[in-house]
Design a protein around this nucleic acid. Structure first.
Lengths: 162, 162
DNA sequence: CCAGAAAGGTTATATAGTAACATAACCACT
DNA sequence: AGTGGTTATGTTACTATATAACCTTTCTGG
């Protein structure tokens, strides 16, 4: 049987956030980079759901949380850091950012995006990676990175919509 | 041996433009939609190279060609039409648009993007399509569309850069 | 020719992202 | 603790991308 991705199933989401944050702390410590309060706050907000969050939405959330006004560069710098460390991914199609559930190994950005509920599910498949690589090589291309964005309906949103 | 995509090889580019425009005219006639002067002009400008073109660059080019000032909505409406008809693709990563070499059949947007010369080569592979579909289905997803953007170096730009 | 539809023009504005420079926090060394 | 370099954040202004709303023109079918 097919196994639903966690994000599309009932789950205690607090675990997602907690796990993501502690994984991030560990990783940053190992790498000798600083997961500052701001960066951690941004990461937590992004992990608030499995739905991609735009930089400006994030900015408003930060402003609300902290009395002080937060300007775009503040948010983008935090996002850049998190992207560099592989703690979040960017969804180009949506100009938005979503948490990475497995930041400990570098990987490409492959997502299933539900048009109905907005959830973003990361798709990890070695086979797909290889296929993309070989298709590109056949065209004489040397690959640096790739991103795949699949839109459709997640398992949960399909039920009762046939 | 690997066969280079046309866009990365020496070729008489006038043929690309002419072919694209006549294919577009035929298709639009068949479909009973109007390829107006403006839309054709935009399509021709996009086909001016194999490199994705931003909407505002396009706008400047149009303004230069026509004495009158061209405003954003004009460009975006033409682009929307061309996208709907499958005559161009949008490269999300670049916020830019590139001509589709085979608009007669609907297909997903899969591109190889050269970081050096900026060329965008369309990658068509039934195998890849199937693999993406089955990977998504395994996660319980029903697929509507997908886009793949691979970055790297095209065949031509690799030579002498090992 | 006329009415309705489609396309394009115009103005204003929303949304996304960056440049440049000032200030503050952190850290290593004395 | 004091100092100086580095990293992070604050602040202002701006560039780039995209759309809303409304009006005018052009096309098309009766």
């Amino acid at each position: 049987m097919t196994e639903r991705p966690l994000a599309c199933s009932q789950h205690n989401h607090d675990h997602c956030i907690d796990d993501a944050l502690s994984a991030a702390r560990t990783l940053c410590a190992e790498r000798g980079v600083r997961l500052t309060d701001l960066r951690e706050q941004v990461l937590a907000l992004i992990w608030d759901s499995h739905k991609p969050l735009g930089a400006y939405t994030l900015m408003e959330m930060l402003s609300e949380e902290s009395t002080r006004r937060v300007a775009p560069p503040t948010v983008y710098r935090a996002l850049d850091f998190l992207l560099e460390q592989g703690l979040i991914h960017r969804i180009n199609r949506l100009n938005a950012f979503v948490g990475c559930p497995s930041p400990e190994h570098q990987h490409h950005s492959h997502f299933l995006l539900c048009n109905d509920c907005g959830v973003a599910v990361e798709l990890e498949s070695d086979k797909l990676d290889k296929d993309i690589l070989s298709a590109a090589r056949n065209a004489g291309f040397s690959v640096e990175a790739h991103s795949l964005e699949v839109t459709g309906l997640c398992a949960r949103c399909q039920t009762g919509k046939v």
